[in-house]
Structures are given as structure tokens and as C-alpha cells.
Design a protein around this nucleic acid. Structure first.
Lengths: 202, 202
DNA sequence: CATTTCTCGAACAGGAATGTACAGGTTACT
DNA sequence: AGTAACCTGTACATTCCTGTTCGAGAAATG
């Protein structure tokens, strides 16, 4: 009986054959890069890009949704690591600039994946996965408000949404060829810092 | 011979039967509202929502793409009218506030349609259709820069992208139930004006 | 009222994508 | 080396969508 490798939806670290783990990683990576190029790419395309048969892919992930979720988790983990490596204890504007600079390119790489996840995962699941990394950013913004470095007349949620929106916008501009990738960072910083700055009259 | 009503891709105003014109309008309206609820809605769903047979729909629009384009044009026309009714000769910040206030809700209604158009119309077609309305906004921003009311250290394209991104972000927040629609206007104004304001040190 | 125009549903062809089944071939582990 | 785990291609069932055809029926127009 040709037993298929169990499609583990839960724990990713089971001690399986080296071969299997390698392929799984390749599939996840391929999911990210392939969806990046074409948000509507089929499972077949993803498998091919991973250098793996389609059936093999289904051996690792029971469904397309499970695959997308795994890829999203992977990206978020990396994002979380990147955030951990950052020193966010500086003055809020400085910290924000640093955060934007290190976050935005990651977001630019995974924005298609995110869109795919939005429509293929159950309602709210994406946000749920995000909230670990979201919490860190929120903490920074709140601190900035408390210290008077960021404006206080707008809700924190809105300020976070603003950051999100601007990063996505920058990614859109790049994807459309209207903005060179290396210019995005400074533009984002300049715009966000101005938008976050305390206002003369509330 | 049961002649189908010509699927006019070009001129929408040919003097046809009252019935046909009414149905065409209903289909366009239904396209907008149905895609708003579900960006991946099928032609069948759109026809049903319009109270029309699927075949009838294909009598008016030869393909899905043509349908989406017609709907987009309809929305853009309305947007253009709304802009025409506006007095944009005031001081730039004031004019910008007015513009945002009247634009953003229209954008909120049609953002799904826009996404659908982005991936179903030929490359650049969406932007091409947009550029009439885009020109007016751009003119305002440029004037603001000239008069020293808006910051000059960032490119116009980026400032426009910023406006786009923030409006979309607001729409996202509303769609997710995290923001009440009536609060979006003021938040957008406050954020955009701050982002556009001339900076102390360039 | 007669005719042209439009609409209707059902049905068909074509394509594409998702999952599943099978059966033999490879590769990693011990 | 031998065994189990894993991979492979092909093939199949299913579902969904698009676009078209047909014939008959309803509605607007003059």
C-alpha cells in the first residue's frame, strides 16, 4: 500500500523523512512565490513550480485552503522574527521608521498570498493569524501616543489601518511599475511620520 | 430568426426598444451591487439579481469582461459627475477635504468591481478609464503644491497613491466591520491633510 | 393588429480546477 | 540489504463557469 504522507494540518514538526520535509518546505516556498506572480495560480502550477507532482502536494496538504494557510503562517513567522530582531525601544518616530523599513518589503512579497488567503480561508482567520504581529505594532503606536510623539486625536485602530493601507498602496504602485522598489521605503516613512505627527489643533 | 439584441461594445445610446434599455440598465446596476457583495460572483448570479435570464444578459454583453467594463464605466461616469458638481477652487486643503468627502463613499461601493476589473480587463485598461477623473484630482494636488499648501518634497504620483490607498483602507475597515461608515470621512480628512501638509524640514 | 424586437429556459460544448484512486518506481532510514 | 515511507504519472469523478444554440413565447412599436 503506497501510504501517502499524512497531511498534517496541525503540527509541522513531526519527525518525518528528510525527503518529505524538504518537499514540504519547497511547496510552501513555491506557494508564496507563485501566488505572488499570479494570485489565481492553480495547485498544479504551484506543484510544478515546486518541482513536485501534484499528487505529492496533496499528500502534504489536504486542500488548497490548507496550503494557503500554511504559506501564510510561514510568512508571518518570518515577519515575527524580523520584528523580534528589531529594537523598538527607541523614540517612537525612530522606531516606527525602522519598523516600516523592515516590514514593508515582506508585505510586498506576500500581498498576493494575503489576498488569496482572504478569500479562501474562513472569515476572520487571516486576522486571527495576524494578531501576534499586530500586537507588537499596536504597542508601539500606543506608546507613541502616550509619550506625545504620535497624534492622539485619532483612534489607534485607524492609525494601524493607515499604516496597512499605505504599505499596500506602495506595493500596488510597485506592481504596476509606477514606483521603483527602493524608493518605497523613504516615501512610506515620510508619509507615515507626517500622518502620525501630533496635530497643532485637535 | 430570433435576433439577439446587439451586444454593443461601443455606443450605449442607440435607440433601441424601451424594454431592452431598461434591462441593460438593470444588468449594469446588478453587476455593481452583486460584485460588491461577492467579487467572484458568476454571470449567472448577476443575471438573476438583475431579474433577467442569463441568455438575455449575453444578448447585451458579449462577455464577462465587457460587462465588467460597462459597469466600471458607469461608476466612473457618476464619479465624474460628482466631481463636476464640486467647487474645487477653494483653498487646497478645503478643496481636498470636500473632494475626499464626496469621493470616498463612491469608491467604497465600487471597490470590488474595481478589483474584478483589474484582473479581467486587459492590462492598463482600468487606469486608462480612470485617467479622466484622475486628472482633476492631480490638478488639485499640483495647485496645492504650487501655492505652498501641500508638501513639495514628495512626488505628485505618490501623494495621489496615498489618497487612493487610504480610501481603500477605509473601505476595507468598513467591510470588516471595524469601522462605522459615517466615521470614515472625518478620519480620512484628518489623516490626508496631515500627510499632505508641508513639512518643517524637507 | 401585425411585425419586429426582445426575452426565456433548457440544453449543449468546452474548459479548467479540485480531489481521489491506483500501481509501480525511488529514496531514505536501520 | 531490506523495509517502510515517500514520490510519480496517469486517469477519473465532480463541480463550476463561460459562451452559444435553439425554438417558442411575450412585449413594444408603428
Amino acid at each position: 500500500m503506497a501510504a501517502a504522507p499524512r497531511a498534517s494540518g496541525q503540527r509541522p514538526a513531526e519527525p518525518r523523512r528528510a525527503d518529505a520535509r524538504r518537499n514540504r518546505a519547497a511547496i510552501v516556498a513555491s506557494t508564496i512565490s507563485t501566488l505572488r506572480a499570479d494570485p489565481d495560480a492553480s495547485v498544479a502550477e504551484i506543484a510544478q513550480a515546486a518541482g513536485v507532482g501534484r499528487v505529492t502536494l496533496y499528500g502534504h496538504f489536504a486542500s488548497r485552503a490548507e496550503l494557503v494557510e500554511a504559506a501564510l503562517i510561514d510568512v508571518l513567522d518570518r515577519g515575527n522574527e524580523a520584528l523580534s530582531a528589531l529594537d523598538l525601544d527607541a523614540a517612537p518616530p525612530e522606531a516606527l521608521a525602522r519598523l516600516v523599513d523592515s516590514s514593508w518589503s515582506l508585505l510586498e512579497e506576500s500581498r498576493s498570498l494575503l489576498a488569496a488567503a482572504q478569500r479562501e480561508l474562513p472569515q476572520g482567520r487571516v486576522r486571527e493569524l495576524h494578531d501576534v504581529v499586530e500586537a507588537r505594532v499596536r504597542a508601539l503606536v500606543v506608546r507613541g501616543q502616550d509619550e506625545g510623539a504620535f497624534r492622539d486625536d485619532l483612534p489607534v485602530d485607524w492609525l494601524l489601518a493607515t499604516m496597512h493601507a499605505l504599505m499596500h498602496g506602495a506595493a500596488d504602485e510597485i506592481a504596476a511599475g509606477r514606483l521603483e522598489p527602493n524608493r518605497a521605503g523613504p516615501l512610506l516613512q515620510a508619509t507615515l511620520l507626517a500622518a502620525y505627527a501630533p496635530q497643532p489643533r485637535g
